[in-house]
């Protein structure tokens, strides 16, 4: 019962934070510096790990599919499998998980620390709403940067699949043939669906991590607990939302 109450309270406070933050959307132009800083944090600093993981996920996907498909002589369709899998599912989910682990944890840690060391209280006494200064620029940056990360993840994953397809003896498909099949079976809508998913996942991750950080009470130990909770809740929400968003988009 206590846990159900805690979940409902968490949901309620997240919703309240969302409504308050949306209310401050009009202040974004004069918070341009903070917005750019958050774009850098969410986008630029996450890009290398997104690129590395996407490359190897695309590669592994091609490799695994290659072994199976060569039994049926259908390895020429590897491009379609990698293309669709990355665009519709693996790209957005993987980017969202990386954002949760790298950006969400950092957001939760920073805001929890500000809360525990009374910096958030200081903002309130200065009549500066934390939702305006600390949350809204992060949400706006997530809306811009997470789809960009997902798109780059798709492209790098496709490229990784192409490399493996060419240099693995049992597959041996030239990049031209690989990308021709990929282009034929992967449509613009597939990519857009993936980007919409990434947008939703990234926004939810950042919102949840902000809320958990701002609701931290206690001392330094609770900062660590908040970071763990923020990442765990984010991962669960990504996978649960993935099912429902996929249902809606297909």
């Amino acid at each position: 019962m206590k846990q159900i109450t805690a979940i409902l309270e968490g949901f309620g406070s997240t919703l309240q934070l969302l409504i308050r933050s949306i209310g401050y959307a009009g202040t974004l132009p004069r918070q341009w510096g903070r917005f750019i800083e958050q774009c850098y944090m969410i986008g630029y600093t996450t890009l290398p790990i997104v690129a590395i993981l996407s490359f190897f996920i695309g590669s592994v996907l091609a490799l695994q599919a290659g072994y199976s498909m060569q039994n049926f002589g259908t390895q020429q369709f590897i491009g379609s499998l990698v293309g669709l899998s990355m665009a519709r599912e693996l790209g957005p989910v993987m980017v969202a998980i990386l954002v949760a682990g790298r950006v969400g944890s950092a957001i939760a840690a920073e805001l929890a620390s500000m809360k525990v060391y009374q910096e958030v209280d200081a903002l309130v006494t200065m009549n500066i709403p934390p939702a305006r200064m600390l949350v809204m620029p992060r949400l706006a940056a997530s809306l811009v940067m997470v789809p960009v990360l997902a798109l780059i993840g798709d492209l790098v994953g496709w490229f990784g699949g192409a490399i493996v397809s060419k240099y693995t003896a049992i597959i041996s498909i030239e990049p031209e043939a690989y990308f021709a099949v990929l282009r034929h079976y992967t449509h613009f809508d597939d990519v857009m669906n993936g980007l919409v998913k990434a947008e939703i996942f990234g926004f939810v991750v950042v919102l949840v991590c902000c809320n958990i950080g701002l609701n931290t009470r206690g001392g330094p130990r609770e900062i660590g607990a908040s970071v763990t909770r923020a990442v765990v809740v984010s991962l669960i929400l990504i996978l649960v939302l993935d099912y429902f968003v996929t249902q809606i988009l297909t």
């Binding site: 060391y117 200081a122 006494t125 200065m126």
Partner: peptide
């Protein structure tokens, strides 16, 4: 206009002393 001087100071650790002082004036323009 109320101001509370916290026991710990509650200074914004990521901002310089100057920016700590300037924050209120900037945010309220």
């Amino acid at each position: 206009r109320m101001a509370l001087v916290f026991q710990s100071g509650a200074l914004f650790n990521s901002l310089s002393v100057y920016d700590n002082l300037a924050l209120y004036l900037r945010e309220h323009r």
